[in-house]
Simulated scan of single mutants.
Amino acid sequence: MFRRCNAIAVAIFMVLAPLFAPAFVKPADAADSLTVFAAASLKETLGQIADDWTKDTGKPVKLSFAASSALARQIDEGAPADVFISADLNWMDHLEKGGQLVDNSRVNLLGNRIVLVEAANAAVTTQIKPGFDLAGLLGTGRLAMGNVASVPAGIYGKAALTSLGVWDSVKAKIAQADNVRAALLLVSRQEAPFGIVYETDAKVDPGVKIVDRFPQDSHPAIIYPAAVVKTSKNPDAKAFLAYLQSQKAAEIFTKAGFTVLGKTQ
């Protein structure tokens, strides 16, 4: 009797199991998604452009945002990126010299500005010029910046403060962050009275306002290069890079405050 019941149970299971088993779906992220590594300051704009790409082509995009330095090092270590967009030339140069980019795929995509920001409810005003009293404005507070040795926004910020003759007076008051958005957050949360971020970052956070722009000649030109990563196996990588240079993408970048440098189609 036991064997008979067991056999019946097995038979019932074989009939019903397919009805309850989950249907197998090919994981899109594993096989089809285009993976884009991009500077943290591109989060909102690139997210919108990626959504448009998916609507236009039906193909998904996986976005990974961080400091350009961190992303370049991940690519060095074999991270599966198809396209890389850096917030400065140096980290793209680093990958190019290491043979990590597809030949002739590199393009200077965007330009930006760096600004001094404070909390939205603050009332300090100042003009950024040689010798301006940033240390006095900070008082006992900290100046939020990206890491001045590796994060592009931090490197640009230090260069600007140095050329304006105020770096030595504030270098002991710097709160260094892993990326520019983390520096922005310190000001937005009022954990630091001032910060140096990209102008486009300041526009997306209602918790901050711009005190003043840094003179463009006080630091190297801010250029965002983009390229296809050599290890990419995704046939859409070059097409997505071209899409980033389209008129449709240019309108999104321009609205966000970027300067479009690449060609538009």
Rank of each mutant, 00 (worst) to 15 (best):
A39K: 02
G47R: 05
V187R: 01
F258K: 06
V15N: 03
H94N: 13
A28G: 14
Q48F: 08
N90Y: 13
L63K: 07
A81I: 06
A31F: 15
L164I: 12
L186G: 00
L184Y: 05
N147I: 07
F132N: 04
A67D: 11
A242E: 15
S169K: 04
V107E: 03
I223T: 10
A23G: 10
A122P: 06
E191W: 01
D212H: 01
D103W: 00
I114N: 10
A23K: 14
L19C: 03
G146T: 09
I222T: 02
V151G: 02
A31R: 11
L184R: 00
S188M: 02
A81L: 15
V180Q: 12
D93S: 00
F84A: 03
P220G: 07
D133S: 12
F84V: 11
F240T: 12
S218C: 11
G111A: 00
A153L: 06
A72D: 10
A79H: 07
R189E: 15
A149D: 12
G47S: 11
I49W: 04
V115N: 13
I222M: 05
W53H: 09
A123S: 15
Q100R: 12
S218I: 07
P215R: 00
L241D: 00
S246N: 14
Y156P: 03
A119K: 14
T35D: 09
D56S: 14
K233P: 04
F214Y: 10
C5A: 13
L42Y: 01
G58H: 04
M92D: 07
A39G: 14
L137Y: 05
D52M: 14
K62I: 05
E191I: 02
D168Y: 06
D56Q: 15
H94P: 11
F214G: 06
P130R: 09
Y156V: 00
K171E: 12
V197S: 02
A182P: 04
I252M: 13
N108Q: 15
